[in-house]
């Protein structure tokens, strides 16, 4: 129905800027706002509390007489594991690994994807179609296999883990950026920049990429949980972080092994992990709706 929509547009056009308008729309999405606050809370919890001395028990110190205690007993907020380690403390430290890998690997994928996508779209023509065909082919590859081979063969180095995951997760990002650049390329201010004799790199980095920020933010928000999931799968399979260090994935694995005797060992790490993923997805979905971003394939 064209009529009521045009009435809405009048209201929007006469009012707020795009970013502010997006924020107003995001604010109306309760899930997204709740998710945002929860995720910020969890992130701060994981990165700040270990810095305060005496607040957390050592996540690696074992206390065999007090093993397998349920939450609240023996001074363990969330119980103790099969070696008497403080579960809460392990979750916090594990969260640093999970979130850290999530952020860093996303950064890697963001960098690769942005450069690849913008170059492909900007150069265009045959190069573009070949580059995108490569992405199509890579999309269908079982990257988990490559990641597993990399992590088992080169040792369980954390930096390798996020490098490998980041190298896997850049595909969607490159498609998003490409679609955005393609539509921007046709616009007049790029034409103007070119007629002023600016270099290609200058046009891409100064004039085009800043305008792709919206969609990139949305997919960055959605990439972090995807990466965290990948990391947790690897840790679950015993191929990620190695004991005694923990990530949420490896804690869930330990919990699953003891779920009949000490169900809290599965419950708490799962809760932290799932709620974090949930909140990030809610924020990403909310942002996507607020900014009206879509992945374009062509």
């Amino acid at each position: 129905m064209p009529d009521p929509i045009s009435a809405n547009q009048v209201a929007i056009e006469s009012g707020t800027s795009l970013g502010k308008d997006a924020w107003l729309r995001l604010k109306k999405n309760k899930f997204a706002v709740l998710g945002l606050f929860f995720f910020i809370f969890v992130t701060l919890l994981c990165f700040i509390t270990p810095l305060i001395p005496g607040l957390l028990a050592d996540p690696d110190s074992t206390d065999l007489p007090n093993r397998g205690l349920p939450p609240g007993e023996g001074g363990f907020l969330m119980g103790s594991d099969s070696l008497g380690r403080d579960l809460f403390s392990r979750i916090i430290y594990g969260g640093r690994v999970s979130l850290g890998v999530g952020f860093l690997a996303t950064l890697v994928s963001l960098t690769i994807g942005t450069v690849y996508g913008s170059v492909s779209a900007y150069v265009g023509g045959r190069t573009d179609s070949i580059m995108m065909r490569i992405v199509d082919i890579l999309y269908a590859l079982p990257f988990m296999i490559i990641v597993i081979i990399l992590t088992t063969f080169f040792g369980n180095e954390l930096w390798l883990l996020f490098l490998a995951i980041g190298a896997v997760e850049w595909l969607t990002m490159s498609r998003i950026v490409r679609g955005q650049v393609l539509s921007l390329k046709k616009q007049e201010f790029v034409e103007a920049a070119r007629s002023l004799g600016l270099s290609h790199a200058n046009i891409i980095f100064r004039h085009i990429l800043p305008n792709t920020v919206g969609p990139v933010i949305v997919y960055t928000t959605l990439t972090v949980p995807a990466v965290m999931l990948l990391e947790s799968v690897l840790s679950f399979l015993g191929l990620g972080v190695q004991p005694p260090a923990a990530s949420w994935g490896s804690l869930i694995k330990e919990g699953a092994d003891h779920m009949r005797t000490s169900p809290w060992l599965l419950a708490f790490p799962s809760l932290f992990f799932s709620l974090s993923i949930f909140s990030l997805n809610a924020v990403g979905d909310g942002l996507r709706d607020a900014l009206d971003v879509r992945a374009s394939k062509d």
Partner: peptide
């Protein structure tokens, strides 16, 4: 456009 003529009929 926006005068309501389509909505009338729809």
């Amino acid at each position: 456009s926006g005068s309501g003529k389509s909505v009338t009929c729809y």
